[in-house]
């Protein structure tokens, strides 16, 4: 099934993407090799590669690269899963009930635009400088996107599906299981993908206080010493893990929601 999923992507579009990435890489090599760019700010691919190897085997500030990446991925995934576990049921409740929406929406709308660092200051005061404030910040960053997508998805469900299923004898819980959850599934998945991005955007903010490991902390720490090769290497790794996690989510969606692959075999009538 996995290979099937990979193949579904248009080969031509994939070639175009590959081409644009290769061009960008080429431009990078060109400006760094010809000395057009100051290596202090933009080191070449080779310097990045060496920093990578160095961090991989020697580590950075007491932790190996694998530890840095592992620590951050653990924080991201734990907070993100928690955001899904809270956000999806809450979003379904808010989509189904105007009262539930009225109760929870003000808080979500209020904290959503707050700058992560400002929020983090308060979380540290409440939860201390340890792991829990970091997880809480990442969790709060991921939550609204999931809720908003789920609420919208539930509201967009064709009301006939609900009536038809009620007529088949479904209770409220059975309606959630048979109609709301699967009906909202594809949009929830999109919300999750966007939310994971939000979790990533606050990673550095979450790791700048009292961390000794984590890829966000590594980037932050390296920047203080103008180690731009390590900063860029960290960003590339962060970006690649993001792409990988997004691919995993899309694949899970593809596997869990086979009907989204159904294609029309007859004319409409």
């Amino acid at each position: 099934m996995f290979t099937q999923w990979l193949k579904r992507d248009n080969n031509q579009r994939f070639a175009i993407s590959l081409g644009s990435v290769a061009t960008m890489f080429g431009a990078w090599v060109f400006v760094t090799e010809t000395g057009l760019a100051n290596p202090l700010f933009l080191p070449g691919p080779k310097a990045i590669y060496l920093a990578f190897i160095d961090c991989l085997f020697e580590g950075y500030q007491g932790s190996t690269l694998v530890e840095h990446v592992g620590t951050s991925l653990y924080r991201i995934l734990a907070a993100f899963l928690l955001a899904c576990l809270v956000g999806i049921p809450l979003g379904i409740a808010m989509g189904m009930s105007k009262t539930a929406h009225a109760i929870f929406n003000p808080f979500i709308e209020f904290y959503r635009p707050l700058p992560p660092l400002g929020l983090y200051t308060l979380l540290v005061m409440w939860l201390g400088i340890g792991e829990s404030s970091k997880l809480a910040l990442l969790f709060l960053a991921g939550l609204p996107g999931i809720i908003i997508a789920t609420v919208q998805a539930v509201k967009d469900i064709n009301p006939t599906f609900v009536l038809a299923t009620k007529s088949l004898g479904a209770s409220r819980m059975e309606l959630i299981r048979e109609v709301y959850l699967p009906g909202a599934g594809p949009t929830i998945l999109t919300g999750m993908r966007i939310s994971l991005g939000f979790v990533y955007t606050v990673l550095v903010a979450a790791e700048i206080v009292a961390a000794t490991a984590g890829i966000g902390w590594m980037i932050w720490d390296a920047a203080k010493f103008l180690l731009s090769d390590i900063v860029i290497m960290g960003l590339i790794i962060l970006g690649l893990t993001g792409i990988a996690l997004d691919m995993i989510m899309r694949f899970i969606g593809y596997a869990l929601m086979p009907w989204t692959r159904a294609t029309r075999k007859f004319s409409k009538t």
Binding site: L163, E178, A262
Partner: peptide, 30 residues
């Protein structure tokens, strides 16, 4: 609404995430 009164709609009322068989089996299993 209840299963003692079966309803057939004009269109687009089958659950898109269920196969033909599962759509028919849903009522009896509920």
């Amino acid at each position: 609404p209840g299963p003692d009164r079966g309803m057939v709609f004009q269109q687009y009322s089958l659950l898109p995430w269920k196969t033909t068989f599962d759509n028919i089996a849903l009522g009896p299993s509920l």
